[in-house]
């Protein structure tokens, strides 16, 4: 992947995942980051496995299909726009707990963004990722230009956020630094939107 241009999470989801033997084991289902928002680095890859009979070191009674596990990013040997290759064999893959982590697809993508007072802004249309020390980090949240353009309030609001955080991304990207916290139902931005 081009390390300069940010890529959208949507481009990564559904990419095929192969193990160290080159065996197709599933597809990308999610990316996890730690709950510290100042370090938005992808720490785990969510893999929707076709099947497995191991979850980490645990041998299951029988094989299960359609299981999603978090594989530590250290296991990602290589990735490009077509696939992810892992460093271990299918049944020897270490897994991580989803607890204490944000899932970019599950907790961020399509979620409602609100200002500190709970006023609704718009939904997250995509999560932009940039290259970071051989991995990926979140750089911003994309809001659809087509939808945003209909509201001058929203355009002004996003512009204020971008100026405040010196964003160099496209005009429809809210910089990640503007996110003050992630709640179960909403992503809270740090700046108040002035409605009306």
């Amino acid at each position: 992947m081009d390390p300069v241009e940010p890529i959208g999470l949507r481009q990564i989801l559904k990419l095929k995942v192969f193990d160290s033997d080159g065996k197709h084991i599933g597809h990308v289902q999610d990316l996890a980051i730690e709950r510290r928002l100042d370090v938005p680095r992808a720490c785990c890859l969510g893999v929707h496995m076709l099947w497995t009979d191991h979850v980490g070191d645990v041998k299951l009674v029988r094989r299960v299909e359609d299981i999603v596990v978090l594989v530590p990013w250290s296991q990602v040997a290589r990735f490009d726009e077509d696939e992810f290759a892992l460093a271990s064999e299918h049944l020897a893959l270490p897994v991580e707990s989803a607890g204490g982590r944000w899932l970019l697809r599950g907790d961020v993508l399509n979620k409602q963004m609100v200002d500190p007072h709970g006023n609704r802004i718009q939904r997250v249309d995509d999560v932009l990722l940039g290259a970071y020390e051989g991995g990926l980090r979140v750089v911003g949240l994309e809001v659809s230009k087509g939808l945003m353009i209909t509201s001058s309030t929203m355009r002004r609001y996003v512009a204020v956020l971008r100026r405040k955080h010196f964003s160099r991304q496209d005009s429809d990207v809210i910089p990640w630094e503007a996110v003050s916290r992630i709640e179960e139902d909403a992503i809270v931005l740090g700046e108040e939107v002035r409605l009306g």
């Binding site: 409602q112 963004m113 006023n119 609704r120 802004i121 718009q122 939904r123 939808l147 209909t150 509201s151 309030t153 409605l195 009306g196």
Partner: peptide, 20 residues
């Protein structure tokens, strides 16, 4: 429509607060 796109909505809001 407002729910789908995440825009402010509700009868208790004023026109200025929920223009769309």
């Amino acid at each position: 429509v407002c729910e789908a796109f995440g825009w402010e909505a509700g009868i208790d809001r004023t026109f200025a607060e929920a223009p769309r």
